[in-house]
Design a binder for these strands. Structure first.
Lengths: 192, 192
DNA sequence: GTCTATAGCAGGATAGAC
DNA sequence: GTCTATCCTGCTATAGAC
């Protein structure tokens, strides 16, 4: 029996995802979620145990989505350098920040192992995959052999996450782009 | 007439600074500030117009402090590369994050130009000073001449800001350190 | 200057009708 | 499954005594 639309529980999760991205966990109230989802109190507490439970469902989905997106780029075509470049230059809504990374600035997310786990796992998998690509680049002679793959992977992810900070501080994506271009210049084969 | 201690307004500002660092603007309540400062409601509203006004005073002081600290390192002794290295390796309470950068993830700070201004200015001055140091390094032949100083400066600041994200996600400073070491390897004269 | 009292509203959750 | 009513607590601010 198909309802012809999206289920209430689905709307609750999507509304929570949007609000967590925009306002973080501390800044997101059940009331705001319900208003955005067009649902009443009862629906939320029927489908979820409470705010943390609903937030966990939302965070898990956002994390999965990010893993899928980044994997697609890093497993895509091109040389190792080109795939790292594609990851760094991929379309982003820079001023909105990273829906996963921003959660690390939320005290209640960091304090709750269950909420932090999907965030940690997502960034960790991204780093691990990037390290593999860097390793490939070294083997193929495209990247400098002296580089530590795990370190470079951390640098790449950090530059992106920090780029969001610079962009949001200045109110413009320019600083994000500058940081990315600087990193690409440092990685670029032609500069070795 | 010296009170022999610290003024109430002073304690309010310092308490607010600590809470903004720990919990952000949205997550910090006047009540929590007053408890930490050991003051009553009246004191706060006597010295400040309200939460935003007190937060502005606290953010301005934190911003000034960060400018002073980073300037001291970047104006210090050593070659340009060594000064950038000193900035990147300087002692940090990594898991607490950056007291200035973390504010960019706060929706109410970003939405309020007065609150965002000191954050923007601080990170912008840091980038500008780093760009000058990079420029020096290029002139002295210590850094690759093809690099764009402003871009590299953005990359350096972004790596630090993003390093905090990685560290807080994993609950360990290791990822911050890895990102910094990766960046230093990419910048290092010996790798050109 | 600092305190307590109070106000009005929002946060987070529960109860029970439909 | 979904709704509204209700509860208790905390947030932000104001009033007015000391």
């Amino acid at each position: 029996m198909y309802s012809g639309g999206v289920s209430t529980s689905e709307r609750l999760i999507e509304s929570t995802r949007a609000l967590l991205w925009e306002r973080g966990y501390v800044g997101t109230s059940p009331k705001a979620i319900l208003e955005r989802a067009g649902a009443g109190q009862g629906s939320m507490y029927h489908h979820f145990k409470g705010k943390p439970d609903l937030a966990l469902a939302a965070i898990r989905r956002t994390a999965e989505e990010m893993v899928a997106t980044t994997t697609a780029v890093l497993d895509g075509p091109g040389t190792p350098y080109e795939r790292i470049e594609a990851y760094l230059l991929r379309e982003r809504e820079v001023l909105r920040g990273c829906p996963v990374g921003r959660l690390t600035m939320d005290p209640e997310v960091v304090a709750d192992d269950a909420l932090r786990a999907p965030v940690d796992e997502t960034l960790d998998r991204l780093r691990a995959r990037l390290a593999e690509v860097v390793e490939e680049g070294k083997e193929q002679g495209e990247l400098a052999p002296g580089l530590d793959s795990a370190e470079i992977a951390a640098t790449v992810v950090a530059t992106v996450q920090g780029g969001y900070v610079l962009a949001r501080a200045s109110g413009s994506p320019a600083a994000f782009d500058a940081g990315v271009r600087g990193l690409l210049a440092l990685l670029a084969p032609r500069h070795r």
